[in-house]
Computed example of a mutant assay.
Amino acid sequence: MIGDTPAPSPVSPAASAPVPAASYAVEGHGLVKTFGSFRAVDGIDIAVPAGAIYGVLGPNGAGKTTLLRTLLGIIDPDEGHRTLLGEGQPLRMARQVGYLPEERGLYPSMKAFEAIAFMGALRGLPLKEGRVRARALLEGHGMGASADKPIRQLSKGMAQTVQLFGTIIHEPRLIVLDEPFSGLDAINQEKLEALIREQARQGVTILFSTHVIAHADRLCERIAIVAGGRIRFEGTPGQARDQLRSQVRLRTRVSDGGWRRALPADTVAEDGAWHFALPDEGIEPLLRALLDGQAGIESLSIERPGLHDAFVAIAGAAAAKQMQDAPAPEEDA
């Protein structure tokens, strides 16, 4: 948002068009999960299209982890129902799912390739086949030299990559990642984003949670913005941005004249420029008034709102601040 431009008008929580497809990898309807008097998930409806990269975006404590675990069948909802890959009992589909929880855990003395194969075996992949695939994965991603190293000798980023490989080694149809970028430096975050895109190109559905808006904006075809245990918005990142009007920044050589009557009512003067929301009728009528009035246009820019601006409008400034104040990822060592 620019300068002191007036705040956008309130946004409807249900501001998105429905997905024009009948095939969903994950669905939840009326999901409620309470812990004592706390409603971690408060009446959520969600549908993740098969083959999509889908992000659940919200601050820590918003209910993202509880929602993912409920959808996976790790915990049962108090109300509502869910289906996973078409199955009403999600745990029956466990071997077709790869799940990376927020809490990481590997045996420190186990060799990297053995750790990957072991995780695959837990999902039904024969250990011998898992070892072959594990070495291929490590070599294919430039980590072949680390295949026989124990986990304790790997950097945090490499160890997390090993656990991620263990999540996908059995070639699941659905990959669920809970805060997968936490603890990774910028280089390893980029590698993880590339791996997510690679899996999506193979037709795998990716569902992940994050409190970092940039990851959702770069990766996701659809997002759910969650705050206070509820979904405040569901749709594409573009649809979220479209909830706000673009902002115009105008500089003129002449500071006054009849042309000023053509400026929108929300115009604010700041730093030698005029700031206002793009009018519904577009910029052309104003341009004509400025030219006819000889205002002397020095510069004019139209800035489309970012996903952060949309998040603030949809979830509220407090939720956005909570996400900004979240601890920064530790540098990979």
Rank of each mutant, 00 (worst) to 15 (best):
P264N: 14
A240V: 11
D242W: 13
A262E: 13
G272D: 04
P237R: 15
L278M: 06
P264W: 07
R253E: 12
R253F: 08
D280F: 00
L286I: 07
G238V: 15
L244W: 08
D280W: 04
P285W: 14
R260P: 12
A265V: 11
Q247R: 15
D256I: 00
P237A: 07
E234Q: 10
L287Y: 01
R251I: 04
A269R: 10
G272S: 03
G258Y: 02
W274M: 05
R249E: 15
W274F: 06
D271F: 05
G257D: 00
A240K: 04
F276H: 12
G238F: 12
G272E: 04
S255D: 02
D256P: 04
S246K: 14
R260F: 01
L244P: 09
V268F: 09
W259N: 04
T267E: 10
D266K: 15
L250A: 09
H275M: 03
R251C: 05
L286T: 06
R253G: 12
H275C: 10
L250T: 05
P279E: 02
A277Q: 09
H275D: 05
R249W: 08
G282D: 05
E234C: 03
R261H: 13
G257M: 01
E281D: 09
T252G: 07
Q247S: 13
R261L: 08
H275Q: 09
R253C: 00
F276L: 11
W259S: 06
V254G: 02
W274R: 01
V268I: 15
A273L: 00
W259C: 10
D280Q: 01
Q243L: 11
